[in-house]
Design a protein around this nucleic acid. Sequence first.
RNA 1: GGAGGUGUGGCCGAGUGGACAAUGGCAGCAGACUGUAAAUCUGCCGGGCUUCGCCCUACGGAGGUUCGAAUCCUCCCGCCUCCA
Length: 393
Amino acid sequence: MPLTFDILSTDGEARRGRLTTPHGVIETPAFMPVGTLGAVKGVTPQELEAAGASILLSNLYHLALRPGIDGIERLGGLHAFSGWRRPILTDSGGFQVWSLGGLRTVDAGSVTFRSHLDGSPLRFTPEGVVDFQERMGVDVAMVLDECTSWPVERPVAEASWERTLAWARRAREAWKEGPGGLFGIVQGSVYRELRERAARDLAALDFTGYAIGGVSVGEPVAERRAVVEWTAPLLPADRPRYLMGVGYPADILHAVAQGVDLFDCVLPARNARHAVLFTREGVLKIKNARFKDDPRPLDEACGCPACARTSRAFLHHLFRCGELTAPVLATLHNLRFYLDFMADIRQAIGLGALTDMGTLARRAAGETGGDSPEGPDFEVLPVSSDPLEQRSS
RNA sequence: GGAGGUGUGGCCGAGUGGACAAUGGCAGCAGACUGUAAAUCUGCCGGGCUUCGCCCUACGGAGGUUCGAAUCCUCCCGCCUCCA
């Protein structure tokens, strides 16, 4: 096995682990900032490292369109090309099957995109996708999958899974087993029996790691959490588990408690660009008028460049003026918040005190009341095995 | 002094007899965002109310024509351009 995954300690189902890759070690549970085109929008690799990121997520579909895999390979691979020296995981384009739903056709053996840039066709096969990612030299490649939409009829979800499973088998065959790893992806929408079957089918294929896909596509929080609760326990315990595209801190905490090790989400970066900042006191919509004269840092306990030297009022001012520095500082802050959150989670698992994380999750999710906004997506829903639930009952 | 032009909601700017409380944009007030077609998108944006409808006040000011005026006429005021 080219990649090694060691579980250092556990706390309930939660695992404190260590994933070793050609470009370094990832302490898990870990959050992967999203750098679709090879960079997290607005920040340098150095800044990303300083924020504490141990692995970057990038995207095959987008890189294949521009600048193209050949070019990246010629320039020494994605690491040399981007300047990011730590591990990289690339998504296969399976998410674009959903997000670019109007621009692609799926058949039994491949997915053909019409470029969102110029309409030109781009055909992805399970084998081709593995080859592309190997040629870019990434540490973790993802199999080509079909991320189903929500809601979707059970028969459609089932047919989709059969196709994705066949693709997974082909990808597994095509994979040269090193130096990077290859992760399989469980689908099955919100159907329990389908998810369970998918997890078992996939587990038999001996992938480096296993991802839960097909969530955070618009489904209610409770559905998403149920999928994690059904699926995670069925994935091989000795392999890293990755919940794709999730999410809010409270969702991450819930999934960690179910034994998930890896996460990625555009939320901290995108919300930062949209002037929505995560703090231990809740979410701040920093452009709101109430921050005009607020001299406090975004988050008293944060060590990011914005919090180290400036105030809420200054960020408010920069965003109002459309200063480029605003989204940059905001992105550094939100990523630092997420990465600190993961570090706290790891520490808590090590201490067997993950339950205590409920406090932080609540605060991160903006549930302290007072000046925090509220909404259905921010709720920490009571789920039977949720540590938060045990705590409050 | 003469000739021509122009004055619209916080700002810019459409509208030249009824479908106009008045297109747009900006500013302002909020909201959304989950393996990134997103530095994006959405709602509100004269006032009041019993707020999916009604009533006030509004297109420089004052009169007038008309069933009806931001739109036409008269006078006045301000600004701009050209000629003396």
